[in-house]
């Protein structure tokens, strides 16, 4: 099982532990991740509000480069996953647009036929390898850990992808099979505010408060997420949130690959758990072997 890896800009810097743990988990499970050479920024949600055709064209450059390699693309960042998939869908549904985007690509000697599948690592692990197989290869049980699985928006919306859009279960089933207890967490797909944390922080703070309060209130030891931006919003502002809302809103926020890596027996350094912005509790650290 080999895949083309599209890390994306956030993962290369601010969400580095997600990059480290994704690579480590794939390696531990014997699945090949080959980074797409010279990939460019997908344009994120920002370029879509500036000029949509450019957003599609720069995504198409990545897709065209990946198409030559003939493997599925794995994109761990939810925004990259959404943007690349959206570009794929628009180019497929609008032949006229596809022609013009290809004309733009031809300026760089590239062409995109539209055959690349863009997938999320969570879905790849669960569907290509399977929960049963992952459980077999796990060296550690997650017994006694209570988690709130947080899917966020973009891996399940707007495209109908690999899970239910209102009540996704992929992570829940994976971690339950590994022994963890899933707490009641009805906010699985509620928005964290995304870039609003930068442009209208009061609004985003409220959204993050809702999420953390719900997870903590239902007894979670940690929140598990699949997205660099969700992670940043939920993890980086816990001091400010606690002051603003007058309660303790500190909780470890792990990328799902980190928790999965713990179950696979990978160490704290390999997973990047020592590079978190929020305090990681002893309970999680001791589970990880520290």
């Amino acid at each position: 099982m080999d895949y083309t890896y599209y890390p994306g800009c956030s993962i290369s810097a601010s969400a580095k532990p997600y990059d480290d743990s994704t690579r480590a988990v794939f390696e531990a499970l014997g699945m090949g991740l080959h980074e797409l050479e010279d990939w460019n920024c997908c344009g994120a949600t920002v370029y879509m509000s500036v000029k949509e055709t450019v957003s599609f064209a720069i995504s198409a450059r990545n897709l065209a480069l990946a198409e030559k390699l003939g493997r599925d693309v794995v994109a761990p960042c939810s925004a990259c996953y959404l943007v690349l998939n959206k570009a794929n869908r628009f180019l497929h549904e609008l032949p006229d647009l596809s022609e013009k985007v290809n004309d733009a690509l031809s300026a760089a000697g590239l062409k995109y036929e539209g055959t690349v599948r863009v997938r999320h690592p969570l879905e790849v692990l669960v569907n290509d390898l399977g929960v049963e197989e992952i459980t077999k290869r796990a060296t550690k049980r997650l017994d006694g850990i209570k988690i709130a699985e947080y899917y966020g928006c973009q891996i399940i919306r707007p495209e109908r992808t690999f899970d239910d859009q209102e009540f996704p279960q992929t992570m829940d089933q994976l971690f339950a099979a590994l022994g963890a207890e899933n707490v009641y967490f009805p906010m699985k797909v509620r928005c964290c505010g995304g870039m609003l944390m930068t442009t209208s922080d009061e609004v985003a703070m409220k959204l993050c408060y809702d999420l953390i309060e719900c997870a903590k209130g239902n007894g979670a030891d940690c929140i598990v997420t699949t997205c660099p931006l969700c992670h940043m919003n939920l993890a980086a502002y816990q001091d400010r949130l606690s002051r603003r809302f007058g309660m303790d809103l500190h909780i470890p926020v792990l990328w799902f690959t980190e928790l999965l890596g713990i179950a696979l027996g990978l160490d704290v350094k390999t997973l990047g758990l020592d590079h978190h912005l929020e305090p990681i509790t002893d309970k999680i650290m001791s589970l990880a072997g520290l």
Binding site: S12, A13, T53, A57, R61, A104, A107, L110
Partner: peptide, 26 residues
């Protein structure tokens, strides 16, 4: 170690610029 102090530059910057310029005209 989660702040990129230096920018990551791609090799195909020139190519990307050409693609963007043409896509802006679509």
């Amino acid at each position: 170690k989660r702040l990129g102090i230096w920018p990551e530059r791609i090799k195909g910057r020139g190519d990307l610029k050409k693609i963007i310029e043409r896509a802006e005209q679509i």
